[in-house]
Design a protein around this nucleic acid. Structure first.
Length: 150
DNA sequence: GCCAACGTTGGC
DNA sequence: GCCAACGTTGGC
């Protein structure tokens, strides 16, 4: 899952521990949260529009999907006038901090690994949530120099 | 239902 | 800051 660190970083999540992943306004990304995520599923935290651009740690799904409250708040930048409490358009999950990598795995380094060349993050440039395979999960932990949790 | 115009994301 | 990619909107 991508986030711009200026908006919300891995350090923010370490401080908050659990956070609703709000503001997703792309149907495909929403569908991943709504349909494919289960409590306990593991997630990479990716810093986009950052220096360096990198996977900076991990987190896990900490709730069932539920309506993103920001869509109902007219003062919120993510307000959606076409959505309603009766028929909410946007769903999210809570995420829970697992760890921050001491050595973030940069996009640059990931691009150099043939094992990672099929990652959707390289193929779907503007999608902020993309699935990751078990092999990619392990490889990136290896590159970060940490053991795979669990 | 097509598609041009427009807006946003995000790497570079 | 530029701009490619691409999702969304709205006129027809």
């Amino acid at each position: 899952m991508k986030s711009e660190p200026d908006a919300y970083s891995i350090d923010d999540l370490e401080r908050d521990q659990v956070e609703p992943w709000d503001g997703i306004r792309n149907y495909q990304a929403r569908n991943f949260m709504r349909d494919d995520m289960k409590i306990g599923d593991k997630i990479f935290f990716y810093h986009s529009n950052a220096n360096p651009i990198a996977i900076v740690g991990t987190m896990e799904v900490a709730s069932e999907p539920y309506p993103d409250p920001t869509q109902f708040d007219p003062d919120n930048k993510y307000f959606d006038e076409k959505s309603s409490e009766e028929n909410p358009r946007w769903q999210l999950v809570d995420v829970k901090f697992i760890q921050k990598f001491e050595n973030p795995v940069t996009r640059e380094a990931m691009k150099e690994e043939p094992e990672l060349e099929d990652m959707l993050i390289f193929k779907r440039s503007r999608l902020s949530i993309t699935p990751v395979t078990e092999a990619e999960w392990k490889k990136i932990h290896e590159m970060a120099g940490v053991s795979v949790p669990g």
